[in-house]
Structure formats: structure tokens, C-alpha cells
Amino acid sequence: MGVVIEFKNVTYTYPLTTEPAIKDINLSIEEGKFYGVIGENGSGKTTFCNVIRGFAPSFYKGELKGDVLINGLATTDYEEGQLALTIGYVFQNPFNQISGVKETVFEEVAFGLENFGVPVDEIERRVIDIMELTDITHLAEKNPFELSGGQQQRAALASIIVLEPDILVIDEPTSQLDPEGTESVFKIIAAMKKAKKTIILVEHKVDLIAEYADEILVFEKGHIIKRGITQDVLSDMSLLEHGVQLPQMARVGSELIKRGVKLDYIPVTTKQATEQLQQLLGKESK
């Protein structure tokens, strides 16, 4: 599969600071894969997203060393605004992801498509579909300012994925959601993956990351300290010492192995854990 995002020796420093927020990052992001980004607070995850989208340095100013290439072209070489066509970026605070000029959620979700110059009939069709997918159809006529945190988060997600960008960068989309809402957001993101989108998701809920992500990037103090296939990374118990949260199943699994239970591998998802336990129970009953 092709490489869509490439980091070459990337170091980025915010203005008025001396310590870089991300350091020496070399990385290739492959097309159509789902990347989970984890790490402690302030480890550089959001900066990483901003650098991909080009907001750092175009908006945040500061100093970017090295190259960030999106489809082979450096973010700093893109014409102002054009990256929106390639990268959909849903950021953390859902309360400010409102255009401020639309009176209904429907129009709010349609705002980006209007900017893209999509014909009106097509806008209607796409917005209706996306609102269905993100389960906000019932909010269509509400004022976006009057939505709850969770509703705003869904609306924010909807108004970006309706643009059908090739790359989705999503920064903690579930902070305002209950477990049920969180699960459904992950299902939406998984659906995007099926549609061959490349996904970069910053998320603290590792149990869900374990289930959906293909690969994991672990940030610490601006560095990527570990990366690889989800199964390998999330079963690495040494990460716990770096303050990284690991899935509950992995922790239970490794504890079991430590106590002498013979597991084939450390499970990271509930499904794997169930499989292993069934296998184990099957062995015993023989």
C-alpha cells in the first residue's frame, strides 16, 4: 500500500518555547490503515495532529524542522486552505467546532460542502446520509449552539466525514460521550476505514483502540517511543512503566501468564481473551 503521510526528521517547537513539542519524528503512514495514537497527557499527540494538518506552523507559527509530506508534497508547500480537501481534522474541543453562522445542525453539517462548492442537491443527499450514520438526524433542525457536549461531538465528526477526505485525523472524539456513544463513534470510524480512508485517531480509551486500530503509535515527551502492530504494542507490558495505559485484557492476560497459566499470546481485545479462555477451558476439560 502507498504511503500517504511521511515525516522526515520532524521537530516542531511552539513559539515562545525552547523545548520542542515533538522531536525527531520519522514515520510513514500507509494508505487505508487505522492508526491509534496513545501516550500521556502533554506527550505531543495533539501537536502531532496539528503538524500533519499543517496548522503547525501555518497557524501556530513556531518552528518546524524537517519535512512533513502529504501525498508527496510538504504541508508548507500546499496553497492556503487546500489541505482541507485531503485531510479531515476533527479536534478535541467540540464546543468550538461550530461555524458560528448556521442556525440549524443540518446547515452546519452542510457548511464544509458549501465551501467545497458541491452542488446543492448533492449536499442535501450527502448530509442526510451522514446524519443518519452519525445518529444526529433527530437534531437536524436544532440550533448547533444548543447541543449537548456529546451531540456537538457527533455533529463535529459528521461535518468533517461528510467531506469524504482521504485522510482523517481525529483527536479524542469521545471525551464528551458515554460508553455507548463512544462505542458507536468507534463504529463510525471503523466504517470510514472500510471506505478505504486512512485514519489517525488520538484516543485514551485503549480497550477500544485495541479492537479497531491496525497500528499503534506511542508518544512520550515528544518522541514516538514505540510503534507497530496493535497486538504487539498493546501487549508490551514495559509500556506501563512509561505511564501508558494498556487494555484491561492485556493486563489480565500478562498477569495470568506470570502466574503460570499457559496462554499462546497476551490478548488485547475481549474477543481474543474469550478465545484464549475457551481454548484453555477446552484443554482442561479434555
Partner: peptide, 25 residues
């Protein structure tokens, strides 16, 4: 809020070149 609003608008293609369409007419 304005700072985040700028990023919101950019993410929603506000600065994309070319004709825009309007639902409201």
C-alpha cells in the same frame, strides 16, 4: 474561542479555492 474557530473554518474548507455553493437562496 476565535483561535479554535479559525481551525474549525479551515478544517471545513473555508479557504478552499473556487466557487462556493449556498443552500440558502
Amino acid at each position: 474561542n476565535t483561535e479554535e474557530r479559525v481551525l474549525t473554518l479551515e478544517s471545513k474548507g473555508f479557504l478552499v479555492k473556487g466557487e462556493k455553493t449556498r443552500l440558502f437562496d
